[in-house]
Structure formats: structure tokens, C-alpha cells
């Protein structure tokens, strides 16, 4: 479904991505792991064109490298940035409605479904989203992107800075997305979530993929974990 080959990206003169190769299949859940600053967020940003990409990015066979972000999104690629970016002056409901790309062709996800799933969002459905807590904002942004009916959703650090109970809820949401047949690229630092729900894990180091395998294989590979993950 998504095929990235020899992806490079730069911030000014510093070379952040150094030839990233990765692929995600139909309905597959893949986690991108690694320490801070190794280029995990930059990888998803480059795929969305937020950082100018160099290299090949194919989505369902089409080259999408360097397209404007709305055209990439309309091809079925959803992106939830690390910064969460809820629209603070819009209500929770309006935030969700804005996730729909074409009101004449609504997708399989509906507003009431998310309000049922997250009672906290339902309680504040008509309040400005700026008042939500960090965890609620995260649930809102993931739900909002799902409203656009993506075939693949890339979620950057969804659990960062959140309480364990909320982390558990987000884990459940991600499992539900996977169960609906949506492919997922999850950028995470918390090994436990990634290990539980992923079909495959990728480990990044110095702007490249340094390990690729099943969660079980990563568990067994003390060298990779010691060198690239554990602090």
C-alpha cells in the first residue's frame, strides 16, 4: 500500500533522513520506533510533504512525493501530527465534521460513533475544542482524521505525555482502527503499545531503518534493543 524507497530529507543543511526504506501492506499495523531525534517524525512529515522529500514515495502504486498535502490526504493517507493541532475555536463536533473530505460522499466513520466511544468528548461536543485536556485532544485528532476515511493512517507519538489510563484508551482506539481494516503507521516511543498491536516493527537510527521484523523478533534481539532503543 505504501512504499518508501531511499527517502532523504533535510532541515536547512542538516541531513535528517538518510535513505529510509519502508513498506506497509493492506490492513497492516506497523510501528516506527527509535530514540528521540533519529528521524521518525521527519519520516512521516516527509511522506506528507511537510518537509520536502527526496526519493520515492508510492501510495497504492502512485508517486506522491512532493504533492501538496491535501492531494495526498485525498488519495487516502491520513496523518495525525505529534502537535495534535485541534482547532481550538471550533467545537468538538465541528472539528470532527471538518475531518470529512467530501460531504456528498461521507465515509464509514460517523460523529456519534466517536462520541459513544469517548464520553468525555460527548460531554463537550458543543464546547470549543481548546478547553480539552491533552488526552481528549489526542482522541479528537485521531477521530477527526478517521472521519476522512483514510486507507492508511499515520499517527505520530499519540501517547506522549499522557496518563497511563489515557494511554490504554488510545491503545484500544488504535486496535479498533486496525480491526476496521485501516492500515496504521504508528510512531511511538513506548515499546509496550507498539509490541502489543503491531504486525511488524521498524527501528530507526541515524535517519535510517536499522531493524525490521516481528515484535517477537525484536523482543529476542538484545543487541538492537540495547543499541537503538533502551537508554
Amino acid at each position: 500500500m505504501l512504499e518508501v524507497k531511499d527517502l532523504h530529507a533535510y532541515y536547512g543543511k542538516s541531513h535528517i533522513l538518510n535513505g529510509v526504506d519502508l513498506s506497509i501492506g493492506e490492513g497492516e499495523v506497523v510501528s516506527l520506533l527509535g530514540r528521540n531525534g533519529v528521524g521518525r517524525s521527519t519520516t512521516v512529515k516527509a511522506i506528507m510533504g511537510e518537509v520536502p522529500p527526496r526519493g520515492s514515495i508510492r501510495f497504492r502504486g502512485e508517486q506522491i512525493a512532493g504533492l501538496p498535502n491535501h492531494r495526498i490526504a485525498r488519495k487516502g493517507l491520513g496523518y495525525v501530527p505529534e502537535s495534535r493541532d485541534v482547532f481550538p475555536t471550533l467545537t468538538v463536533r465541528e472539528n470532527l465534521e471538518l475531518g470529512v473530505k467530501n460531504t456528498r460522499r461521507p465515509g464509514k466513520w460517523k460523529v456519534p460513533q466517536f462520541l459513544d466511544m469517548f464520553p468525555n468528548l460527548a460531554r463537550r461536543a458543543d464546547a470549543p475544542a481548546g478547553v480539552l485536556s491533552g488526552g481528549e485532544k489526542q482522541m479528537l485528532t485521531i477521530s477527526r482524521t478517521l472521519m476522512g476515511d483514510p486507507a492508511l493512517i499515520m499517527i505520530d507519538e499519540p501517547t506522549e505525555g499522557l496518563a497511563p489510563l489515557i494511554v490504554k484508551q488510545i491503545g484500544e482506539l488504535i486496535a479498533e482502527i486496525a480491526a476496521a481494516g485501516v492500515s496504521i503507521l504508528l510512531v511511538e516511543q513506548k515499546l509496550s503499545i507498539a509490541m502489543d498491536i503491531s504486525h511488524r516493527v521498524l527501528v530507526m537510527g541515524h535517519g535510517r531503518i536499522v531493524f525490521e521484523g516481528t515484535p517477537a523478533a525484536l523482543r529476542g534481539d538484545q543487541t538492537v534493543r540495547g543499541e537503538w532503543l533502551e537508554v
Binding site: 501538496p68 485525498r74 501530527p81 482547532f87 473530505k101 477527526r144 476522512g148
Partner: peptide, 13 residues
């Protein structure tokens, strides 16, 4: 007005 790039990520021109 607050997050222009995010509006684009949602598929709006």
C-alpha cells in the same frame, strides 16, 4: 486561522 497545515492534512485545498 490557527492551524493552516492541519486543514490541508485533512484533505482541504
Amino acid at each position: 486561522l490557527t492551524h493552516g497545515a492541519m486543514v490541508g492534512h485533512l484533505g482541504h485545498n
